[in-house]
Nucleic acid binder design. Structure first.
Length: 478
DNA sequence: TTTTGAGTTGTTCGA
DNA sequence: GTCGAACAACTCAAA
């Protein structure tokens, strides 16, 4: 039995699966009490926004690494499943824990949960900033409002100077113990069918690998990041998104690593800007919790979306007949991640050319991305659709052929992910339906047989989208 | 309160 | 091939 003096503190870890720069962990250790780190697998409280399959695959590896890391410091990671509120209340009762430490959540469902947690568990809940650079909601306009445009938001962030230096990992953690479920019993890894081969080949989840990747990016790629990040065929991006989502590294670590390695590089400024886009997405979600379901621009509720399951399925499977779109969708399916430039191209194609709702696209990304993040996914899909913050003008419709020619000029990306087109010459790679028949024959491409005809003629899709968007304006003024 | 400058990532057309 | 203009107004944030 524990005496009052030995009452442990619970460290509820959710999206801060790391030892370094973890303010919640530091706060728990600073209490001087034994620390009981726990992760709760809750398939209910988040409702529709429970993590998708690819995210859960990642979570398995990240938890494994976290358990190892904690063990090396003297603590034991406890795994429990069930409704978070009930699990934590039971754990408090079971261990006599004095308080709970956790990271400040940003998702609407998690914020609602936090409001009830002290009442349900009967102990104080201390929140630390672990997910963001700034306290959510803290970046305000001069009149105290929230921002709806990125550039002034980012200027307000930068005006605060650099974020604080990351905290070191604790030397040692005085760990408490309690019964734990086995990670394997959660079945987060797919078996029948095993769709994760491409994920395993591409990623090593967990904090140690995350720190390695960050260091490699900071030392090697960040200098050229501004130029190379738009080329999907080269390894020009940080590929840190799943790690930032699960908190294997903090955004402050990501900022400082680049700033230390290449303080003057323009690529560093671009990288910081991307981190601030992440903050902006979270800020928008903080102030507009309904944006995961509803368009920020309300007139878009009247958008005449088409509901054509065969079109949606062609897009999901990478069988649209538009090579850069298909390459992106297949990359997503195979490795659980898609290059950012191609995310814009594929999303624009779905929403505009196929006139399919951004919610349908967001749902697919949510299930298939290892970095699926409620704030980024929802706000960026809305941005593409034109109903979000700072949205592009409606006539700005990506042309998949031009985008392919511009950003995948040597065709390396398309050839990698759409191998049936690999032998087409560069000139025809991004628009095979326009290639002369002898060129197709020589490349072994038979349109409609081993590669689809385009599911829609681009000019027609563009015109249809423009017409649909125009109805919103006329409906509004009517 | 009113004014003003600006706003992630594009495409097409015509000169 | 390259360039600028048009696309269509609207909203935001600060002065």
């Amino acid at each position: 039995m524990t005496t009052p003096a030995e009452r442990p503190v619970i460290l509820w870890l959710r999206r801060e699966l790391r030892l370094h720069d973890n303010a919640a962990l530091a706060a728990a250790v600073a209490t001087g009490r034994p620390v009981l780190p726990v992760f709760v697998l809750d398939r209910e409280t988040a409702g529709a926004w429970v993590s998708g399959g690819a995210s859960l695959w990642w979570l398995h590896g990240s938890l494994q690494a976290l358990a190892t890391g904690l063990r090396s410091k003297g603590a034991t990671l406890i795994l429990r499943s069930g409704r978070i509120a009930e699990v934590l209340a039971a754990l408090v009762a079971e261990t006599g824990a004095a308080e709970i430490h956790a990271g400040q959540p940003v998702e609407p469902w998690a914020r609602r949960l936090l409001d009830t947690l002290p009442g349900v568990t009967g102990v104080p809940v201390h929140l630390a900033r672990t997910i963001t650079l700034y306290d959510p909601g803290a970046i305000r306009t001069k009149t105290g409002g929230s921002y709806g445009v990125f550039t002034p938001f980012s200027k307000a962030c930068l005006a605060r100077g650099q974020p604080a230096e990351p905290l070191p990992a604790p030397e040692r953690i005085d760990g408490a113990t309690a019964g734990s479920e086995a990670l394997e019993s959660w079945h987060l890894l797919p078996t029948h069918p095993d769709w994760a081969a491409g994920l395993r080949a591409s990623w090593t989840p967990g904090e140690p690998a995350a720190l390695q990747r960050l260091e490699r990016f900071a030392q090697g790629s960040v200098g050229g990041y501004g130029d190379s990040r738009n080329m999907p065929g080269i390894d020009g991006t940080a590929m840190l998104s799943p790690r930032l989502h699960w908190g294997e590294v903090s955004p402050a670590q990501a900022w400082h690593a680049a700033e230390h390695a290449a303080p003057q590089a323009s690529g560093t400024a671009t990288w910081v800007n991307e981190l601030l886009w992440r903050e902006f997405s979270i800020d928008l979600l903080w102030h507009h919790p309904e944006l995961t379901e509803q368009p920020l621009r309300r007139e878009f509720a009247a958008m005449p979306w088409l509901r054509d399951p065969s079109m949606l399925q062609a897009w999901q499977r990478g069988l649209t007949g538009l090579p850069i779109v298909d390459a992106g969708m297949r990359q997503l399916w195979q490795i659980g991640w898609m290059h950012n430039r191609v995310r814009m191209i594929t999303a624009s194609f779905l929403v505009k050319h196929l006139l399919t709702s951004w919610q349908d696209g967001a749902a697919w990304f949510w299930d298939t991305l290892v970095d699926a993040d409620l704030a980024s996914n929802s706000t960026q899909w809305q941005w593409v659709a034109g109903c979000g913050a700072d949205a592009a003008p409606f006539f700005r419709i990506f042309n998949p052929v031009l985008q392919g020619q511009k950003f995948d000029a040597d065709g390396g990306y398309v050839r990698r992910w759409v191998p049936e087109l690999a032998r087409l010459p560069d000139r025809h790679l991004h628009s095979p339906w326009e290639a002369p028949s002898e060129v197709l024959a020589q490349a072994g491409v038979v349109l409609g047989e081993n590669y689809p005809q385009p599911v829609i003629e681009l000019a027609r899709g563009r015109a249809r989208a423009l017409a649909a968007f125009r109805t919103l304006r006329t409906a509004e003024t009517a």
